[in-house]
Design a protein around this nucleic acid. Structure first.
Lengths: 144, 144
DNA sequence: CAAGATACATAGGGCGCCTATGTATCTTGG
DNA sequence: CCAAGATACATAGGCGCCCTATGTATCTTG
């Protein structure tokens, strides 16, 4: 059945995505994990942003984001400023050290993936298409 | 620089892989997580297999695999039999319930991904290529 | 201005992953 | 043939990511 094949393909996508993340995390050693880099990238992109909103764009629970931001703050990679228009809220932004860490992390991920990539038969265009596909999948999660 | 772009692209691949796994896990609710299904699929494929060897093919530490197999066994999805040729070793195999769970999990992952997939502009061939790409990347991790 | 909504923190738990270490059991060189 | 090292697995203990439940300010509004 074509149905079974499609299920299997979708399952493989998820499974290999999981493997890829684990592989990169292992090769990252003691440095920033994919989840951390993801969060740094998000904060970099969204500028000063509140915890709750950050949790929403990251699709995680607010307490999860509180804890994650606290860890980043302890490492000096983000700063929490008071929101002048709402005393309940805080605005999270990257520090210079956080921006540097984001850059270093990207370089390292790039090196690691490039190393595996070079051995295989795929092109840069394949890589871009794969990224687009997953971006599209994830984008449509929240939407329904 | 082309270098910076490549790093960014590789980083995005990893980040979106991480998002995809999280998204699927969330939509799986209380049912099997991607990591669990990955392990069930592995045991299904490799037949009766020892803990250490399973840890090797899954690229994780042996105690990690011991714990994972224990959880699967508690749920009745795998059975540990004594290895007749080595009293230290045990042979892990799927039970009927485990095989059924694997089937159900694949169907659910298929449904979830298909739901997001249908909204986007991508084809089955794109999906297949993305899977192949990640498979290739992960395959070359151990190889070097 | 009380009552509900909202932003965030804390408490507590589960799972995936790790290293260090212990306990059998196998294998092998003297 | 038997001690010594190698091997298969388990246990202990720890960290990160993620969750729900709940508490505490602060905002908003009828």
């Amino acid at each position: 059945m074509a149905h079974e094949d499609a299920d299997r393909l979708a399952t493989e996508l998820v499974i290999y995505a999981s493997r890829l993340v684990r592989a990169v995390r292992r090769h990252a050693g003691d440095e920033v994990a994919p989840e951390t880099l993801r969060l740094l990238a998000q904060i970099d992109q969204r500028g000063p942003i509140g915890i709750t909103q950050l949790a929403q764009v990251e699709n995680c629970a607010q307490p999860t984001m509180s804890a994650a931001v606290r860890l980043l703050a302890e490492k000096g990679w983000v700063e929490r400023a008071a929101d002048p228009r709402d005393a309940r809220a805080s605005l999270v932004a990257l520090t210079a050290a956080g921006a540097a860490e984001l850059r270093r992390g990207r370089e390292r991920f790039g090196r690691v993936v490039a190393g595996w990539f070079a051995v295989g038969p795929h092109t840069d265009a394949d890589l871009r298409r794969a990224v687009d596909l997953m971006k599209s999948l994830v984008a449509h999660e929240a939407g329904q």
